[in-house]
Design a binder for these strands. Structure first.
Length: 436
RNA sequence: GGAAGCGUAUCGAAGUGGUCAUAACGAGCCGCACUCGAAAUGCGGUUGCCCGCAAGGGCACGAGAGUUCGAAUCUCUCCGCUUCCGCCA
């Protein structure tokens, strides 16, 4: 969410930003919201003047009552009661206008970083860096479900019976591999200085609205029937929500959390659940990281945490590339996003396994995540409290990551290579054997 | 899930319809004084949000609604906490 003052002062920049995101239908909202805001402030001013008068009058009544001047007090009461209807009207108008302004503000996209490439959709995302060699083996690499089945590691049929399409049972070594990856990811992030965190898997609507854009809420989130609770789509949602309505000391930043959680997603919208296997599912598990930091530090943190994910995949001997999310594909709350894609030797292309986002102050503004301003002596330009910046990034999301893992580490002899870093979590196994 | 109690600043806590919210009182924290220095003591400071160039004004006593000229105070709903009971990994 933008600052209305910023919109007022920079309407053209806001419109330019909207155009670059190919959301031309939102262009008129800019002028609308500026006009509504002006009306709102006028109504607010009037209502407040009236309240001031009422407050003054009411205090006088108190004085008159104390002096036992009942007639005068009653006359005053009548006078103020008359103001009541007027005030009710103004208050209603003030509220209505304020809500309209907020409604529009929630829909206006965050100002993007200059580095975001312009493009309509994900087909126009821009490759940044390739890490490692994209190898294609001499033998045929089977579909990931087949590899998993050969390891006796997946049961999709039963999952369809218990839960429907988009769910899975992972079994045996594949399930163990899944846990091993998460455990390794946890320790990897702890070693980077992050605090490990297991968050609530359900959150309230107030947090949902603060943490996600309207579109995401519609397409992603499961609601618990009869409760004000929603299943999280990622631990980021609860971890960022943890800071709701907070005013932190500067010294407490940055907050670095790495969280484990299952993630629940409806996946309605463009794609549905068409991809077979465990590529796109309603429930998966993820090791995530979030950063809450000073505004001026968020760009540096972005580069740093993106690097952590790349390093993580490299340590698992996997080939990845980074991809800059273009303007049209970028979520409305995001300043910048870079995706991490892993190499699929079977498809001979890269596919998404994680994404790193800088949300700027968008979530912070919605949720009220603030930092106590410093004295004029040390920070003359920043007298009052201000909003923090938030970032989030995937460490790893098995089972999707296992697709790339199995395809890359499958050897011609029907064994799956287990990278050294993972072995302590796999009973020191050096490989898994298909159809064992 | 049942019962009772509670929710006020950084913390403890007073206020139970009016001039009591920059919120008594106590503690903490910051500054100053005293001191060789410290402790003790004394003095001063110490919530956040909104509108406004400013002057100033408005709002907030867990959240929301209601009664009233006026609500921290009365009523209702919700949220949270504590204790006891019940149940349960």
């Amino acid at each position: 969410m933008l600052d209305i003052k910023f919109v007022r002062q920079n309407p053209d920049a806001v419109k330019e930003n909207i155009k670059r995101k190919f959301q031309d239908d939102k262009l008129e909202l800019v002028d609308n919201v500026i006009a509504l805001d002006e009306q709102y402030r006028a109504a607010l001013q009037q209502a407040e003047n009236l309240r001031a008068a009422r407050n003054k009058g009411s205090k006088e009544i108190g004085g008159l009552m104390a002096q036992k001047k009942l007639d005068e007090a009653n006359a005053k009461k009548a006078e103020i009661a008359a103001m009541g209807t007027e005030l009710d009207k103004l208050a209603a108008l003030e509220k209505e206008l304020g809500e309209k302004v907020r409604e529009i503000m929630l829909v206006l996209p965050q100002m993007m970083d200059d580095s975001v490439p312009t493009g309509k959709d994900d087909s126009e995302n821009v490759e940044l860096v390739r890490y490692g060699e994209a190898k294609v083996p001499d033998f045929d690499v089977p579909y990931h479900v087949e590899i998993m089945e050969a390891l006796h590691g997946i049961d999709l049929d039963s999952a369809r019976k218990t839960s429907g399409n988009g769910f899975y049972f992972l079994m045996g070594d594949v399930a163990r591999l899944h846990s091993a990856v998460l455990s390794y990811a946890r320790d990897f992030m702890i070693n980077k200085g992050f605090t490990y965190c297991i968050p609530p898997y359900m959150i309230r609507s107030s947090v949902v609205q603060g943490v996600m854009s309207f579109a995401d809420v519609q397409d992603m989130v499961y609601k618990i029937e009869g409760e004000d609770l929603y299943l999280i789509g990622t631990s980021e949602h609860s971890m960022i929500g943890r800071y709701i309505d907070s005013l932190s000391a500067k010294e407490s930043l940055p907050q670095l959390l790495t969280g484990y959680s299952p993630c629940f997603r409806k996946e309605v919208g463009a794609h549905g659940i068409e991809e077979r296997g465990v590529f796109r599912v309603h429930q998966f598990e993820k090791q995530e990281m979030i950063v809450v930091c000073e505004p001026e530090d968020s760009a540096a943190w972005f580069d740093k945490i993106l690097g952590y994910t790349v390093e993580f995949f490299q340590s698992l001997e996997m080939t990845v590339r980074t991809l800059a999310c273009c303007s049209g594909d970028l979520g409305d709350l995001k300043v910048k996003q870079v995706e991490v894609e892993a190499w699929s030797p079977r498809q001979q292309k890269y596919f998404e396994v994680g994404s790193c986002s800088n949300l700027g102050d968008a979530q912070a503004r919605r949720l009220g995540i603030r930092v106590r301003g410093h004295s004029e002596a040390t920070e003359p330009d920043r007298r009052s409290n201000y909003y923090a910046h938030t970032l989030n990034n995937t460490v790893v999301t098995p089972p999707r990551m296992l697709i790339a893992f199995l395809e890359n580490h499958l050897r011609e002899d029907g064994t799956v290579h287990v990278p050294e870093v993972l072995r302590p979590y796999m009973g020191n196994a050096e490989c898994l054997v298909l159809n064992a």
